[in-house]
Simulated scan of single mutants.
Amino acid sequence: MDSASIAAIIRSEIPKSVMLDHAEVPGAARRVAAEKAREMGLSGRDARRSTGFNAHLVMERRLKEICEEAGGLVVEGRVFPGTELTLHQPLMQYGRVLLGRATVHERGGLPSANVTRRNGAKLNSCLGRVGHLFGVETDPNAPIHVLILTLSDCHELEKIAATYLAIIAPTFDSFLFRVDLDDFIGGYDESSVAEADASPVGAIDLGLEPRKGVRPYFGEEHRPSDNRADGSR
């Protein structure tokens, strides 16, 4: 499945307002955690370790709150819903999207392959290609595991250098989908415009009916040719 189709699935399940809330969390959590580390008098590696750990706790709590406020379901069981795949980290479920989070250490890099992420990646086989004539086969109801990936700034303790939305391949060796989160959010507006442009003007029903016995007005440039033959205007 191509990136545009995958993006459309995610946008159909997670409203733009909710995705905006999710996008604000990493930076806010990092700032709070960095300030706490400074209050404790930490610096260098100790400050980074404390900031990373506390930012993780703040993000986890806030993302669950956002999910519940938006009507989603926080998944904290021992297995992925509907499977026997082990789960050790909470997920936010929006329809078929199981949203989690992770950190990366370089741009374009994969997160560490813990049990939850490896098992989540296996769910994404429904988005992969198969070797038959039509090339792609998907289950429209199958859950997919989507991650918010954050890259911390190596120079400024309180900053996030990048935030991505990503889907890892079932083999956990590449991405099926990865995009800057701000760019993804901007795409909500583009997809809305595309849908509006695709609707024919004639399909809009204003509830109006022509008066009986009165011929419709076409405008001179659109007047049928038979009306012009006798010189009528």
Rank of each mutant, 00 (worst) to 15 (best):
L123I: 05
I14D: 00
D180Q: 01
P90M: 03
T116P: 07
F53E: 14
A169I: 02
A23Q: 11
R38A: 12
G95A: 04
P140V: 05
E24R: 15
C154M: 13
R48V: 07
S112W: 08
R129K: 14
V97C: 08
E76V: 11
R211S: 09
L208F: 11
L208P: 02
Y217E: 11
A29V: 03
E220Q: 12
L123M: 07
A37V: 06
H132G: 13
R45P: 00
D139M: 06
V75S: 03
R38L: 15
T163Q: 05
E24P: 00
L165I: 15
A113S: 13
D226S: 14
P90N: 03
I14Q: 03
A229G: 00
L98H: 02
S43P: 01
Q89N: 14
G41F: 11
E24V: 11
I168S: 02
L63H: 11
S225D: 12
L57A: 12
V136P: 00
R178C: 03
P224V: 09
A166M: 04
A198W: 03
L63K: 14
H132P: 00
R178T: 06
I160W: 01
M59C: 14
H155L: 13
G202E: 10
G231N: 11
E158D: 10
V79I: 13
R211T: 08
R118N: 08
R48Y: 12
Q89T: 12
I144Q: 04
L42K: 06
M40H: 11
E84L: 11
G131F: 14
F175W: 01
G135I: 06
G44M: 07
L87W: 08
F184W: 10
G77V: 04
S152T: 06
L57V: 11
A113G: 05
H22Q: 15
S5Y: 01
G186W: 04
E39N: 15
S192Q: 08
I10L: 00
I144F: 03
T116L: 07
I10C: 00
A23D: 05
G128L: 09
A29E: 04
E24M: 15
V18Y: 11
R107V: 08
V79F: 13
M92W: 07
G41V: 14
I148W: 02
A194N: 08
A113V: 07
L98N: 03
R117V: 10
K36A: 15
R11H: 06
V115W: 01
R118H: 09
A161N: 04
V179E: 06
P210A: 04
E39T: 12
E137R: 14
E60N: 07
L206V: 07
E65T: 13
G100F: 02
G186N: 02
P216V: 05
G207K: 07
G77F: 05
S17K: 13
A55K: 01
S192E: 12
G128H: 07
E195K: 10
P15H: 02
R78N: 15
P170S: 10
E39L: 15
S174G: 14
T83I: 09
G82D: 10
E60R: 05
G202H: 02
P210V: 06
P210Y: 05
E195G: 00
R228D: 14
